[in-house]
Design a binder for these strands. Structure first.
Lengths: 203, 203, 203, 203
DNA sequence: CATGAATGAGCTTTCATTCAT
DNA sequence: AATGAATGAAAGCTCATTCAT
């Protein structure tokens, strides 16, 4: 079993993605070299092109695979819960929880993929839309149940809520000294969105 | 006509920044070529290096110049207003207003600068922090006046609010068909943050 | 046919050095273009960087490879000889002999490598020192045997002798019309060093 | 007299040469920038081209001016002396003495000018030949007087003698720890050439 | 005479991608 | 399927030189 690596034997596809994740997270997409991904994956440079069309394709595939994991994990977390208000809180906790547990994934999802025209214009980004629409669904559900106000457009709300969480993630990934925990951040953000900042309200 | 030289105009620094703005917005930083910026600025390639240390420096300078304009414009818009609740709404309107009126600037501020280590880790990004802290100040002011709830950390709120607006901008810049106006978006986002999504509240 | 690849031959390292030798000799190091070396070596520009770190490294490698050949050839020529007086003459003949048989090598060894800080200060130039020390050894040997005067510092003598030969080489390489042969030059130089210029002496 | 420098007023030619001397000695010809010479000379970049055709011309002019000084100094030193044997010693002492007193000049004369085809092939180098021929004249004079052996070709001797001194200079300029003085070196080199290395001779 | 901003050709070097084995 | 040596286009940057003022 001399040369084979941790992974059983033939799933080079996964080995390459694993390597790409580390390299992209460390250096950023443009500064990453295909040959470094190959080296880390214990694979020849040329082998990468048997599994991926080009360097962009690695990033996009990585994004989709990881996004799917995030979506799965999120749906699992939301599964038992009926109250859309609580669901938003769970969304926030799960989203930010991922930043801690899978920091490299977070760095790439945040930064690399929304990076530039190449990825946000040309590439339609189905998974991301799917992720955003989970929020929209929750809001719509709440509105149908009369629990959330009907005069807020769910398409606006989903982006506002996601944006708030995402900006927090960026901060979390980049900063070193932080005065609050991710749980606190998640709670405060969901509280903001649910109850608002105005003072004269019960929570 | 003080500084003019062989070339008619003279204010090459600005011409280069203007050109860079367009090129970066269209192609993204990494895919932009210095020579294209030069061409668009009607300037020789080498001239760029009389005004900027390197390609990175162009982006950073562009960011700081434009960010300063945004801050100035914002402070002007906030000048007459005393109520922090209204200030948040003005912030949202101004921020999103800029996306429409200066779309290219918006694209760069959003995408390029939050990009990656090169710009968010190494480069401290004073102007961005300054911008964020305008939100924090408004929130703190509201808290001191008893108008905004005291149990929300202004450092979290500022990022949540900015993130919500920024995500909306990204959507605005990238999408072509939109079902709502920017004014609507601004109002809905500030309403979300002030009054929350919960249904059982007066506005 | 072990290593061969797309290209017929395979021994690109040597092909590049051969090409570099010609180009450097013709144009001088600074005026030589890596792309011209590549063209002459029938190799792509990038290929050069698989074998050498940079342009400097080509020169240094060339120097060391050729210097080693010179040293080997010299030691072979000195092998059978016991008399240090005769050894100096052989050294001179071999050194100048090389100038004729490998003129391009001579041009580079002479001119490029003694050039300037980049190559004589930063790069320690082991091979050259080794070459010089062959002279010193011969002198010391002669002194021990009582054949050569003891009041001449071998470290001075080695440089004087080498310098005399080297200057002759420079002349030989650069001039076109010469009034004497290299053998004559070698003999006269070694005679100068052994017997001196003074008239009242037996040879 | 605000801006004018040490030199009286208009001899920018000299100021440029002085600056070039320092810059070339420090960085080497190819790594020296015309603009740095200009800066050091307190002169605009363009001004240099009023006095010199191009960068090469600065080096060549510098060479000729300095070589002339060396020749003048040498002829002065040789003036009173009639004995060609003593003249050779004076030549050696003067040549090496210059290395100490005008190290920068030495570095350039040695290294930069003999550097490459550009300067030794294309440029005929009259002054250098003149300098060499002083040695040849001394040798011929000695031969006519019967003091030096007639079977040594003065054209070979001149190069051998110069080469020995030059190599010593190179060593002197480049090395930091030396086990002998320049005077010793000069004496030993001239003794070598006069009396030879052979042991069985009176000095 | 003097200036120095502007030029732009031309350099080295990188690296995604290919393809003969 | 896998390799990895080879490719070569492409890019950022430098700097000798010019010329309008």
């Amino acid at each position: 079993m001399a040369k084979s690596s941790r992974n059983s034997k033939g799933d080079k596809y996964q080995k390459i993605l694993d390597a790409a994740l580390k390299v992209f997270a460390k250096k950023g997409f443009y500064s990453s070299k295909v040959s470094e991904i190959a080296r880390l994956a214990n694979v020849a440079d040329g082998t990468i092109y048997l599994y991926f069309r080009n360097k962009d394709d690695i990033l996009i595939s990585l994004f989709e695979v990881e996004m799917q994991k995030v979506i799965d994990r999120l749906e699992e977390a939301l599964a038992g819960e009926g109250d859309p208000r609580r669901k938003l809180e769970i969304f926030a906790l799960t989203h930010l929880g991922m930043v801690d547990s899978r920091r490299e994934v977070a760095e790439i999802l945040q930064v690399e993929v929304r990076q530039s025209s190449k990825f946000m214009k040309d590439y339609h980004n189905e998974k991301f839309i799917q992720y955003l629409n989970i929020i929209a669904s929750i809001v719509e559900e709440g509105q149908r149940q009369g629990l959330l106000r009907a005069d807020i457009n769910p398409d606006i709300a989903k982006r506002a809520f996601f944006g708030a969480l995402d900006e927090m993630s960026v901060y979390w990934v980049l900063s070193t000294k932080r005065s609050f925990s991710l749980e606190t951040a998640a709670q405060q953000i969901s509280r903001c969105f649910l109850s608002g900042l105005l003072a004269d309200k019960a929570d």
